[in-house]
Structures are given as C-alpha cells and as structure tokens.
Design a protein around this nucleic acid. Structure first.
Length: 418
RNA sequence: GUGGGUGUAGCUCAGAUGGUUAGAGCGUCAGGUUGUGGCCCUGAAGGCCGUGGGUUCGAUUCCCAUCACUCACCCCA
C-alpha cells in the first residue's frame, strides 16, 4: 500500500462540516469588514521567501520545501501567505489603489517540520492583510476581525495576547540591553539560548526551559525600550482595544519568528488544544513591501491555522452534523420498476429534491435496511403490483406509516417533500 | 533535528513463559416465509499480528533496525 506523505492529512466527509463552517464564516466576516478574497501561487520563487520572511529565520533555513524545476529555477512551496500576497499586490500594481487595501485568503501552506498535535507539513490557513495604514486603528481593526471570526465559529475562551517588538530604529538598542542583562548569567542559560544571545537575544524571552525562564525575570522588555513613536503606537492600540471592549493581556514573551514583523504583534491562544496553542498569529510588517521592491507601504495581517481552529471548536463543544440525508429513497423490485425508479429519482433531483434509488440490485429487505441507514425520510416502494395498479407504497421511515401515492405522481411527491 | 509512547481484521481493542486452525465487540454482506428498516438470532467475508533483519528446531510473541502514527521539545498557524 502506498501511504500518504508524512505530515499530510486526509480530510474525510465527516470532518467537512467544520471546514465549511470556518470557510463560510471567514468569508462572511471578512466581507463584513470590507476585505476581498484573493488567490495566489502555491509555489513562488525561493527568493521571495528568503527576502520577505527573512533568510535567518528557522522557517527559511530549515523548513521550506524547495526544489529546482526543469529549467533550473529554485522554487519553494509557500511556507506562509503574507509574502505571496505582498508580491501579488506589488506585481499587480495595487499599491497605488485607494488605501487601505484589505485582502484575505484561504490557502494551504507547507513546512518541513516534525508533525504533532496542531502541526502538519501541509497545513491550511485563513489569513487577512491590511495595507496602507500605519495607524493603531488599523491594528485594532485587524484584531477585531480575527476575534469576530474566532467567536463566529464558536470558539470560546481564546485569549488575546499583544506585544510590541519595536521597529528598526529601536530594536538594535534593545538587543544591546538584553545582551548586557544576560551577560553575567550566560553560563546558566541553556545551550540554544547561549547561541541566541549572539544571534537574536529576543528569542531567549520565549524559551520554555525552566532555568532560562527564571533568568528572564527582570529582563528588559521590548515595551520598555521602545522609541517614542513605537511606544505611542502601542499605547494608542491599548486604548482602542479597551474602548472597543476587547480584552487583552500584554505578553512580553510573544516574539514572532518571521523577520518582517515590526511594532505590534499579537496572538489568540487556546489552552485546550495541546502544545500548539496559537490559533491565530499576526502583527505589523511596515517594512515588507519596500523590502520586496514595492513602495514604502505599511501593512498588518494575521493568519489562523484551520486545523487548530477545528481542534479549538471541538474543545469548545461545537458539534456539527455531518452527512447528507435523502428526503426519499425509492425501492424498486424488478426491471420495469427499476426503470421507473430511475426516472422518478431524476425528476425529483431536477426539482431540487434529494432522492435516491437502488442501483445495486438489492432485495427489498436489504433496501429498507439501507434506506434506514442513510437516514431517508421516506421510502417509495415500487414492484410489479404497483406498476399494474399505478399506486406505489409510500412509507414514512420515522413513524412507519404507509400510504399510497400515484406511481408517476411527481407533483404529489414534490408537494410532500419540497 | 532531539526525546517519550504506540503499531494484531474497515473501527475500538483482547491475546499467548516463543509451538501447529490468532479472537471479541462494532461495522460490512447474506439469511431468519414467498415484497418492507430500526430490536433479536444465524452465517459469511475480511489479518503474511507495520516492514526488514537477528536469536531459535520454531517468532505475531524476545532482540535490533527501519517506517508510520502519536505526544512533547524546537518553531509556528
């Protein structure tokens, strides 16, 4: 047997109602907020991610599905959506549209990681991006959109965490302060954090190691080292959230792993779905468009992992009915009846009524069992006797009641079932 | 990439200090009066006991490796 590749998932029919619910809610709520849907390539030139996401990030360094095509071009399966959207709006000249430009997408992404609960190599996300505003009001709008979607699909108990990681003008100073703070305790840090001290000290704050956690107490926080504009932006955001009644906690450990983030970063976290608890992650990326060769255009966006949303929905007690139940099952006996059954089925379907009939050639008893199993509301029995008398037997499967109805009386059936 | 757990029928799981025909429940299919479901009864199909090596007279059972699933680290959605 050939198995599916590691880290991929099959989504069987029983699961589809959850996907429909999320996709439908995402589209409706996005539209409500004035966002338009777009689609873009599953693979891009590798350079897009190297430059956009950042070639020092884990995602780019060790998690991308990169391959060479027949012409020797280096291509990469998208590991996230923002870089593709940014490229698309630059390439399609939308940076000169009326601002803000508000877009959303529902896509699959690929990352070569070791699978676990809430994490797979092909994963799916709903994301939204807002370009052309560097105002905190834009941040608040994005957070409100994310919250509406999360609540709209029935997830309860998700917590909003926000932080500001500064901008290119205040970050170097912050890194220096962090290095200074940890310098005396360098030997007590875990090996990875000792490395982080040199490369990206910001990440030490995110370490799960107990010893490191203790050492981070009292460490300088990004929000204490923000430059004037950054601090002002963060204060405005907090004010706007409070004014809209959106609860939040300032979480100085949120450190996004994608280089393009600046200023505001945020996550919605569910504590009921295992270790991969971030169901929505996002932030501001004011330098990205320029970095990719476009104009200096600020932006902010987020993405939500759809399978994680489903885990959170189920943990929140959301139960969705699966399966399509026919209104009528037609049980023919004999060849003549089979012909009649097929044509009645077809006419009912044409009238928008879900009807089924036997196409396996089962006995009447087996057909009744089958009709019961698939949840048919009515069964219409047609045999030679019924063709003769032109009166078929209609059985209500719930009550067991039987009555007669004209064999070809489609109108009567439509009245009953429509 | 690192670590823990698991791998027996479609599903959920038993099982034997290593010994000849590997079990149950559910599900599927067929019957239980000649044209009728849900309950009940009977029967059938369906497993090289994840794969490859090793130890052994003999391995599904013990050992090793490998693959897959799973949880966690890491990272992130």
């Amino acid at each position: 047997m050939i198995q599916k590749p590691r880290g991929t998932i099959d989504i069987m029919p029983e699961e589809m109602p959850y996907w429909y619910k999320i996709e439908q809610t995402a589209r409706e709520v996005s539209a409500l907020y004035g966002f338009s849907e777009l689609r873009f390539p599953t693979f891009e030139n590798t350079e897009l991610f190297a430059r956009g996401v950042g070639d020092t990030t884990d995602v780019v360094q060790k998690e991308m599905y990169t391959f060479t095509d027949r012409e020797g071009r280096s291509l990469t399966l998208r590991p996230e959506g923002t870089a593709g959207v940014a490229r698309a709006i630059i390439e399609n000249g939308r940076c000169s549209d009326a601002m803000p430009l508000k877009l959303f997408y529902i896509i699959n992404c690929f990352r070569y990681e070791k699978p676990q609960a809430g994490r797979s190599r092909e994963f799916f996300q709903y994301g939204a991006e807002l370009f052309g505003s560097d105002s905190a009001a834009a941040d608040a709008t994005m957070i409100a959109l994310a919250k509406s979607v999360i609540e709209g699909i029935g997830i309860t108990g998700a917590k909003l965490h926000i932080n500001s990681i500064g901008c290119p003008s205040c970050r170097p100073e912050y890194h220096a302060k962090l290095r200074e703070f940890f310098a005396s305790n360098e030997d007590k840090l875990c090996p990875t954090c000792r490395e982080r001290l040199k490369t990206n000290p910001l990440r030490i704050l995110d370490c799960k190691n107990e010893a490191c956690k203790r050492l981070t107490e009292g460490a300088p926080k990004t929000i204490d080292c923000l430059c004037e504009p950054c601090a002002g932006h963060f204060e405005s955001l907090k004010g706007l959230l409070a004014a809209s009644g959106i609860g939040y906690t300032v979480d100085t450990t949120i450190v996004r792993g994608l280089d393009y983030y600046t200023h505001t970063v945020f996550e919605f976290i569910s504590d009921k779905i295992g270790a991969q608890s971030t169901i929505c992650g996002g932030g501001r990326y004011d330098g990205l468009i320029k970095q990719l060769g476009g104009p200096a255009l600020p932006g902010i966006g987020f993405a939500m992992g759809i399978t994680r949303l489903i885990l959170a929905m189920k943990a929140s007690g959301v139960e969705l009915e699966s399966g399509i139940k026919p209104r009528l099952y037609i049980a023919p006996m004999g060849e003549a009846a089979q012909i009649a059954a097929l044509s009645i089925t077809s006419e009912l379907r044409g009238a928008g009524i879900n009807a089924e009939c036997d196409i396996v050639g089962r006995s009447l008893k087996a057909q009744m069992k089958y009709a019961d199993k698939i949840g048919a509301q009515y069964t219409l029995i047609i045999g030679d006797a019924e063709l003769e008398s032109r009166r078929a037997i209609l059985k209500n499967m719930e009550t067991g009641e039987q009555s007669e109805i004209g064999v070809r009386d489609i109108d009567a059936l439509r009245r009953l079932l429509g």
